[in-house]
Every structure is written in C-alpha cells, then in structure tokens.
C-alpha cells in the first residue's frame, strides 16, 4: 500500500520564517497553475522556475532553495505576482532567500557596490567631494562652450531649492558629459533645483544585496539631509 504524505509532518521552516515577515505572501494559496512560470524570463535558468520554487517552499526543501543560484538570476521584477491569480508574493520571497545567505557570501559585485554606497554615498565609490568637483567642472565647461547656456546653474546642497535631484553614479564617474543634456532641459524650463551631497546617487545595491540594514541606512541619511538641511519639498528621481 502506498502511504499518503502526511502534510502535518512537513517541516517548513523557511516558509514560516518568510511568512513571519510577509504575512500576506499567500504561499499556501498556490494553485500550481504555472501562470507565473509561463511569463517569467528566468524560467528554466538553473533548472528553476517560480512555480517550482513555491512547491519546494511548501514541501520544506529549504536547503535546495537556499543553495540554488536562481535567486540572483531572478530580478524580482514582479511579473509573476502581477499574473498570479492568488497574488503570491514571489519577489519578496526571493529577497528573503537572498537574505538567508551570509552577507559576505553574496555576489561580490553587488556586495562591493553596496559597501561603497554606505561608505561614500554612491555605488561606484565616488565620494561627495569628487561628485561636487565633477559636476561643477562639467557645468563650467558647458557655460564656456555651449551657446545659449552661459547662465547654466548647477549647485550642490543649495538650501531651499524647490527640488533635489539624484543622479546615477555612472554619469559623474564614467560619462560626465551625459549630465549636460539633463541640465539643459532643467535650465530651459527654469527649474529651481540642486544635488544633495549626502547619498546623492540614484542606485541602491544594498536593496539588491538584500541588506536591510544598509538599505535603510542609505535612505535614512538621504531623508535626513533633504528634510533637515536642504528643506526641499520635492525629490526627483532622474532614472
């Protein structure tokens, strides 16, 4: 006689742990319909897909889940959850699986960018002094060489500006001339704006690293600077 699986004997530690953090993740509601998997570009990579992941989670295959590198191929884009008839929160599950890996064992590229950001304010490791020097230098070049923009104004930490802009660190670090067109648009419409010196970069690799502490630190520092020092009512994400 084949014995039925006794569900109450299943050890689902990872599931319980993640449900503690995301009570409405709905893992138990999976109908195994596969809609998530059909629309996921990461399906089949490393032999994994979203439906399989939820099955494994519900069967308590915690070690296999945590060991699989699939969590770094999934981009947490959320298409699976949008399509899911039961609204299962697969992206946040991935985040929490990433979080289970010891911090120093997570991908070196993401780890390095997160650490740089915490230390300097940008994932590419450009400190605020370098950032300020670069933007002011590029702005000076534009004022000198680009007709019609002799009055172009670019500032860092100008108190009371109507808007604070972030900037992906790729521009000031690797292609500073790409900032010019953005500034020209702002100049043309007469925008009253400034860059912040604290956590000025638009990216946030600590979020990708699933480093809650680092992620929170970056956001908190930024919010405190804008609210308390710059006192600007608007923050503009430039990407």
């Amino acid at each position: 006689m084949v014995e039925a699986i006794k569900i109450d004997r299943l050890d689902v530690e990872l599931k319980d742990e993640v449900l503690d953090k995301i009570p409405d993740a709905n893992f138990d509601l999976c109908l195994t319909c596969g809609t998530c998997t059909g629309g996921c570009p990461a399906t089949e990579q490393f032999g994994m897909d979203p439906r399989k992941l939820i099955r494994m989670l519900n069967f308590g295959m915690d070690d296999e889940i945590i060991k699989s590198d699939w969590k770094w191929v999934c981009s947490m884009c959320g298409r699976c959850q949008l399509a899911c008839p039961m609204n299962i929160n697969i992206p946040k599950l991935i985040f929490n699986i990433r979080n289970k890996v010891p911090r120093d064992k997570r991908p070196r590229g993401i780890l390095g960018s997160c650490d740089q950001h915490i230390r300097t304010g940008s994932a590419m490791g450009a400190a605020k002094e370098d950032f300020e020097f670069t933007v002011l230098d590029v702005a000076e070049e534009i004022r000198e060489d680009h007709a019609g923009f002799e009055d172009l104004e670019v500032t860092v930490d100008r108190v009371g500006a109507q808007m604070v802009l972030n900037q992906n660190s790729r521009e000031p670090v690797t292609e500073p001339e790409e900032m010019g067109p953005l500034w020209k648009v702002l100049h043309t419409v007469g925008a009253d704006w400034t860059y912040p010196s604290v956590m000025w970069a638009g990216e946030n690799y600590c979020m990708f690293l699933a480093d809650d502490e680092g992620w929170k630190y970056i956001i908190e520092e930024f919010v405190l600077h804008v609210d308390n020092n710059l006192k600007s009512p608007l923050v503009v994400n430039t990407e």
């Binding site: 990461a42 590198d69 770094w72 981009s75 298409r79 991908p107 070196r108 590229g109 390095g112 990708f208």
Partner: peptide
C-alpha cells in the same frame, strides 16, 4: 512589460550566461 534582466543586481551578480538567456 518583460523585465530586461538587468535589474535586481543581475548586472553585478556574476551569472552573465543566465542573465543573457533571461
């Protein structure tokens, strides 16, 4: 939309073959 596959840290995660297949 379909995600391009560069997000979530994928560009720096060290799995280029899978990222490109994505």
């Amino acid at each position: 939309n379909f995600c391009c596959g560069g997000g979530g840290g994928a560009l720096q995660a060290g799995f280029p073959e899978q990222r490109r297949a994505y």
